[in-house]
């Protein structure tokens, strides 16, 4: 079992390392790939919050945005170096996520409350960013200068960040695989996924596991948001709006499969291709996203991974 998964991981790494090399002459494709890699990380954060621990956080855009703005502002004003800025973003977003989760878990609030609460956070984040225009640049945002990534500087610009993002998401996958299948917390997780009340009864501290998940996932979101800011070099509210982050992320997670480690990879790859193919629709993409999400929820709720596992290759799993 472990061996098959190790082979799968090596294949994954190889595929993701080689794919952009085929498109070296077209920077645009590499740019799309880099964006796809970042959305895979975002989807991982959401997947852990929603898929694994059933906390509906509808503020992925706000969380990544907080990370991006902290990094962006401290780099623009020369408050600290890039490494410290990224670390600060990670810590800050982790703290916010922990507080939100703590409030909703400790008060025993149902899943919808968390949903409403985090949706309100999204709204607050947007208003705050636009309202504090003298710090954040308001609607138009601000630019930061690119930073050096050490040995990766030899590569073309988009490729650098592609590798950074892919390395991050692969590392997260490996770590979460280890956590899920080889530690006590992992067992607790899988119990909570099946039935929360029973797991409470057998002595699992559900509240602790949930808040811990929120802490780690938010840290991932803050880190990747900061990286995303460095990558795009332009930090504007529209980049982190509900429609441009949360929506694709939710489609990725539901399409790929909730609570699966491979789901976000598949989902984000499909979304990247579909998004490019439908670029000519312009603002109508949002209508299409809404429609897709509705149809997916109605007829394909368990995602591709589950479909493959149940219908196509039951012998493999």
């Amino acid at each position: 079992m472990v061996k098959t998964r190790l082979i799968a991981l090596i294949v994954l790494v190889a595929v993701y390392a080689v794919i952009p090399l085929l498109f070296l002459n077209t920077p645009y494709v590499v740019f799309i790939l880099a964006q796809m890699a970042f959305f895979t990380i975002f989807a991982y954060g959401f997947n852990f919050l929603f898929g694994f621990s059933r906390q509906l956080f509808l503020c992925i855009g706000a969380f990544t945005g907080i990370g991006a703005y902290i990094t962006g502002i401290s780099l623009r004003d020369g408050l600290m170096g890039p490494v410290e800025a990224v670390l600060l973003s990670t810590a800050a977003v982790a703290a916010v996520g922990w507080v939100v989760s703590f409030l909703s878990v400790r008060r025993k609030l149902v899943v919808i409350f968390t949903g409403i609460f985090t949706l309100a956070i999204t709204l607050v984040f947007n208003n705050l960013v636009i309202g504090l225009a003298n710090v954040t640049g308001g609607e138009t945002g601000f630019r930061i200068r690119g930073i050096s990534l050490g040995p990766l500087d030899a590569l073309p610009y988009n490729l650098r960040y592609y590798y950074v993002a892919i390395a991050t998401v692969l590392a997260i996958t490996v770590i979460s695989y280890y956590l899920l299948f080889h530690t006590r917390t992992g067992y607790a997780y899988r119990c909570i996924m099946d039935d929360e009340i029973s797991s409470e009864l057998v002595g699992i501290n559900v509240a602790r596991v949930k808040t811990l998940t929120a802490l780690l996932s938010s840290a991932v979101l803050g880190f990747s948001g900061a990286q995303y800011a460095l990558f795009s070099q332009l930090i504007a509210p529209s980049y982190f709006a509900f429609a441009s982050v949360d929506l694709p992320v939710q489609i990725i997670v539901i399409l790929g499969g909730r609570a699966s480690l491979l789901g976000p990879y598949i989902g984000s790859a499909i979304i990247a291709v579909v998004n490019e193919a439908l670029k000519f629709l312009g603002p109508l993409t949002q209508v299409l996203y809404g429609l897709t999400l509705m149809l997916l929820l109605a007829f394909f709720r368990n995602g591709i991974v589950d479909f493959v596992r149940r219908k196509l290759f039951p012998w493999f799993f």
Partner: peptide
């Protein structure tokens, strides 16, 4: 949960359709 999600998707759909 599904009700929440499906109405969210419906509202996104309506929002996109109305503002475009």
């Amino acid at each position: 949960l599904l009700g929440l999600y499906i109405t969210l998707a419906f509202s996104i759909f309506l929002h996109g359709a109305l503002i475009t």
